[in-house]
Protein backbone atom coordinates (compact mmCIF):
# COMPACT_ATOMS: atom_id res chain seq x y z
CA UNK A 1 0.00 0.00 0.00
CA UNK A 2 1.40 3.37 -0.89
CA UNK A 3 2.37 5.39 2.14
CA UNK A 4 1.13 8.93 2.25
CA UNK A 5 0.88 11.18 5.22
CA UNK A 6 -2.31 13.14 5.66
CA UNK A 7 -2.03 16.85 6.07
CA UNK A 8 -3.38 17.75 9.51
CA UNK A 9 -6.95 19.03 9.22
CA UNK A 10 -7.20 22.59 10.57
CA UNK A 11 -9.10 22.96 13.87
CA UNK A 12 -11.55 25.33 12.23
CA UNK A 13 -12.87 22.65 9.83
CA UNK A 14 -13.60 20.29 12.71
CA UNK A 15 -15.32 22.99 14.73
CA UNK A 16 -17.52 23.87 11.72
CA UNK A 17 -18.50 20.20 11.33
CA UNK A 18 -19.27 20.01 15.05
CA UNK A 19 -21.56 23.06 14.79
CA UNK A 20 -23.30 21.48 11.77
CA UNK A 21 -23.81 18.26 13.76
CA UNK A 22 -25.32 20.17 16.68
CA UNK A 23 -27.66 22.08 14.35
CA UNK A 24 -28.76 18.82 12.70
CA UNK A 25 -29.41 17.32 16.15
CA UNK A 26 -31.64 20.30 16.89
CA UNK A 27 -33.44 19.72 13.58
CA UNK A 28 -34.09 16.03 14.38
CA UNK A 29 -35.46 16.87 17.81
CA UNK A 30 -37.66 19.70 16.46
CA UNK A 31 -39.05 17.63 13.56
CA UNK A 32 -39.71 14.68 15.86
CA UNK A 33 -42.12 16.81 17.91
CA UNK A 34 -44.34 17.47 14.86
CA UNK A 35 -46.78 14.71 13.84
CA UNK A 36 -45.96 13.70 10.26
CA UNK A 37 -47.06 10.08 10.47
CA UNK A 38 -44.72 7.61 8.81
CA UNK A 39 -42.68 10.52 7.44
CA UNK A 40 -41.25 11.17 10.94
CA UNK A 41 -39.11 8.05 10.88
CA UNK A 42 -37.82 8.79 7.37
CA UNK A 43 -36.85 12.34 8.31
CA UNK A 44 -35.10 10.98 11.43
CA UNK A 45 -33.21 8.42 9.34
CA UNK A 46 -32.37 10.99 6.66
CA UNK A 47 -30.90 13.47 9.14
CA UNK A 48 -29.04 10.63 10.91
CA UNK A 49 -27.53 9.55 7.57
CA UNK A 50 -26.46 13.11 6.82
CA UNK A 51 -24.85 13.39 10.27
CA UNK A 52 -23.10 10.04 9.75
CA UNK A 53 -21.62 11.17 6.44
CA UNK A 54 -20.23 14.29 8.13
CA UNK A 55 -18.64 12.13 10.85
CA UNK A 56 -17.32 9.59 8.31
CA UNK A 57 -15.91 12.02 5.77
CA UNK A 58 -14.51 14.68 8.11
CA UNK A 59 -14.00 13.37 11.64
CA UNK A 60 -12.90 9.95 10.39
CA UNK A 61 -10.86 11.46 7.52
CA UNK A 62 -12.55 9.31 4.88
CA UNK A 63 -12.33 12.31 2.55
CA UNK A 64 -8.52 12.07 2.61
CA UNK A 65 -8.32 8.28 2.38
CA UNK A 66 -7.65 6.31 -0.77
CA UNK A 67 -10.21 4.64 -2.98
CA UNK A 68 -9.93 1.31 -1.13
CA UNK A 69 -11.46 2.79 2.04
CA UNK A 70 -14.39 4.24 0.14
CA UNK A 71 -15.04 1.01 -1.77
CA UNK A 72 -14.90 -0.83 1.56
CA UNK A 73 -17.59 1.42 2.97
CA UNK A 74 -19.71 0.98 -0.14
CA UNK A 75 -19.39 -2.82 0.01
CA UNK A 76 -20.42 -2.75 3.67
CA UNK A 77 -23.46 -0.60 2.84
CA UNK A 78 -24.48 -2.95 -0.01
CA UNK A 79 -24.23 -5.94 2.35
CA UNK A 80 -26.33 -4.01 4.82
CA UNK A 81 -28.94 -3.19 2.17
CA UNK A 82 -29.15 -6.90 1.22
CA UNK A 83 -29.45 -7.78 4.91
CA UNK A 84 -32.31 -5.29 5.39
CA UNK A 85 -33.98 -6.08 2.05
CA UNK A 86 -34.02 -9.85 2.57
CA UNK A 87 -35.33 -9.48 6.12
CA UNK A 88 -38.20 -7.27 5.01
CA UNK A 89 -39.18 -9.34 1.99
CA UNK A 90 -39.61 -12.13 4.53
CA UNK A 91 -41.32 -10.10 7.27
CA UNK A 92 -43.71 -8.11 5.06
CA UNK A 93 -44.90 -10.99 2.86
CA UNK A 94 -45.26 -13.90 5.22
Amino acid sequence: MSEHKHEPVPYRTFIQIWVALLVLTGVTIAVSRIHLGALNIWVALGVASLKSSLVLFFFMHLKQEGRLFKIGLLVMLVILAIFIGMTFTDVLYR
Partner: peptide, 29 residues
Protein backbone atom coordinates in the same frame (compact mmCIF):
# COMPACT_ATOMS: atom_id res chain seq x y z
CA UNK B 1 2.44 0.26 7.15
CA UNK B 2 0.29 2.99 8.61
CA UNK B 3 -2.24 2.91 5.78
CA UNK B 4 -2.55 -0.86 6.18
CA UNK B 5 -3.05 -0.47 9.93
CA UNK B 6 -5.76 2.11 9.34
CA UNK B 7 -7.48 -0.04 6.75
CA UNK B 8 -7.43 -2.95 9.20
CA UNK B 9 -9.21 -0.73 11.71
CA UNK B 10 -11.79 0.28 9.10
CA UNK B 11 -12.44 -3.39 8.27
CA UNK B 12 -13.05 -4.05 11.95
CA UNK B 13 -15.38 -1.06 12.15
CA UNK B 14 -17.40 -2.37 9.17
CA UNK B 15 -18.04 -5.55 11.16
CA UNK B 16 -19.06 -3.41 14.15
CA UNK B 17 -21.62 -1.66 11.96
CA UNK B 18 -23.01 -5.05 10.89
CA UNK B 19 -23.20 -6.07 14.56
CA UNK B 20 -25.27 -3.03 15.51
CA UNK B 21 -27.28 -3.27 12.28
CA UNK B 22 -28.60 -6.64 13.41
CA UNK B 23 -30.09 -4.91 16.44
CA UNK B 24 -31.45 -2.02 14.36
CA UNK B 25 -33.08 -4.46 11.92
CA UNK B 26 -34.68 -6.26 14.84
CA UNK B 27 -35.94 -2.85 15.94
CA UNK B 28 -37.33 -2.08 12.46
CA UNK B 29 -39.16 -5.41 12.27
Amino acid sequence: DDTGARFGMWLFLYTEVILFSGLFILYAV
